[in-house]
Nucleic acid binder design. Structure first.
Lengths: 121, 121
DNA sequence: TGAACACTTGAACAATTATTCAAATGTTCA
DNA sequence: TGAACATTTGAATAATTGTTCAAGTGTTCA
């Protein structure tokens, strides 16, 4: 914490600093947003989420479309489930997963749209 | 890779699987989106980005508003710079940082909006 | 030129975590 | 009940990375 003086653009920038300090998000809110981004930052999880945005699926099929092992996918599904991104429903021997958080679609699709990838449906 | 049989909901789910396989994003696109989410998933970086979305600032002020050390902030700024999220411009002894990627604002604000945090300006 | 300031950089440490393999649990059905 | 299948779980490993501290570079100005 070696904060001592200010920068040279004191007069120009201090207004911005003031604004930031007034309007800054709470640490809790920042943690929340970062958590979502963290969950979506791993390709193995992102593939699962992208697949589930097209429709519900069981673990075996998720492993197939996301190029992973059943075990690996199951581990990631647990993380996604713990964070309320997906939900699970058992049907006989199978467990059917689907998107639990309605916000996820918009967050993901906005990002895709802004990174010049197309998004269908 | 122990993929052998299918799930019980074969008939219902295989259409979805087919759709996913046809419309799946390229690995490169997925990597790109995940990279952005990864950059935004760290509170220390997120605070810097949120601050810069309000206006340009020098390192000292960024450290102040983001509750970090100058050194720590500088390290994170390098990561953000390497990934073209922020850009730097020297003014005398100071370096003024600003948002370089116009897409970032929408991606961040969409996420905030969907996580019941308000976003001003 | 050299002192003071603003920022960057490198090395080291600790923490987080994705992946794999093997074993366990849950479910159906003959 | 037991065999076969679908999924989960735990432990172990390896890789990534945020933070800190100390030292370095770049810039101004007396």
């Amino acid at each position: 914490m070696e904060k001592r003086l200010q920068c040279e653009h004191k007069t120009e920038h201090e207004l911005t600093v003031q604004r930031v300090k007034e309007e800054i998000l709470s640490s809790a809110d920042i943690e929340k947003v970062c958590k979502i981004f963290h969950l979506l930052s791993e390709p193995s999880r992102m593939k699962i989420v992208l697949a589930l945005l097209k429709g519900e699926m069981c673990v075996y099929h998720l492993a197939e479309v996301s190029d992973g092992t059943v075990s690996g996918v199951s581990h990631q599904l647990r993380v996604l489930r713990d964070n309320k991104i997906v939900k699970a429903k058992r049907f006989g021997k199978n467990v059917e997963y689907s998107i639990a958080d309605g916000h996820i679609r918009n967050i993901v699709e906005t990002a895709l749209r802004h990174l010049c990838c197309r998004v269908e449906e």
